[in-house]
């Protein structure tokens, strides 16, 4: 059996889910024996999301145009997409800006009203991605195959989700150990 093509993606989130991923410690070594890490902020240097990915952990919500573009590419090129952590599943903390209204009011609040000096909107087309009006959970934008809540999901939960996939089975996402939010 060939190795599983494995990716992790970091969208609008704090990278805490990736830190928790690294907390799997020695199991990472076992994982590495079964997978090729083809794209990941913590496990690969590739700049472009490749074709034919088997499993992808997506951390973070969809908050800007870059996130949107990447998640659509990920969906097209991935067999099993896992919403990884509360930001991906619910928009969580990044989503709290939604209560302020659209992008304009968020930027106004952040860069004009609360700024001490240099009150101006960030504007660097092509470098600073534009904000979406509303931060969205991943499954509001593209279909998702597995939901793994948690802020962050504990290392054991990540392991319990990935281990069956390596054997070609779907994990059972049930019970406090697997689906508790927060």
């Amino acid at each position: 059996m060939g190795k599983v093509k494995f990716a992790t993606v970091w969208l609008a989130g704090c990278a805490g889910c990736h830190m928790s991923f690294l907390d799997m410690d020695e199991w990472l070594i076992e994982l590495a024996q079964h997978v090729d890490v083809v794209y990941s902020p913590v496990g690969s240097d590739l700049k472009h999301y490749p074709d034919g990915v088997d499993v992808c952990l997506v951390e973070g919500a969809i908050a800007n145009v870059d996130n949107l573009e990447l998640i659509q590419e990920v969906r097209q090129k991935t067999k099993i997409l896992i919403s990884f952590g509360d930001c991906a599943v619910t928009a969580n903390v990044p989503g709290m800006r939604n209560m302020l209204g659209g992008a304009e009011s968020v930027l106004t609040r952040g860069y004009l009203e609360l700024a001490d000096a240099g009150k101006q909107f960030p504007n660097e087309p092509g470098i600073v991605p534009e904000l979406l009006d509303q931060v969205q959970s991943v499954h509001n934008v593209v279909p998702v195959d597995i939901f793994m809540p948690g802020c962050p999901p504990p290392a054991d939960r990540i392991k319990a989700t990935l281990a069956p996939l390596l054997k070609g089975e779907m994990p059972v996402m049930e019970g406090r150990e697997m689906i508790k939010f927060g």
């Binding site: 619910t90 989503g95 998702v144 939901f147 793994m148 689906i179």
Partner: peptide, 12 residues
């Protein structure tokens, strides 16, 4: 067994 919400959050 709610692992996600099928209905969009309203962010009131």
């Amino acid at each position: 067994g709610m692992d996600h919400s099928r209905f969009p959050y309203r962010f009131p």
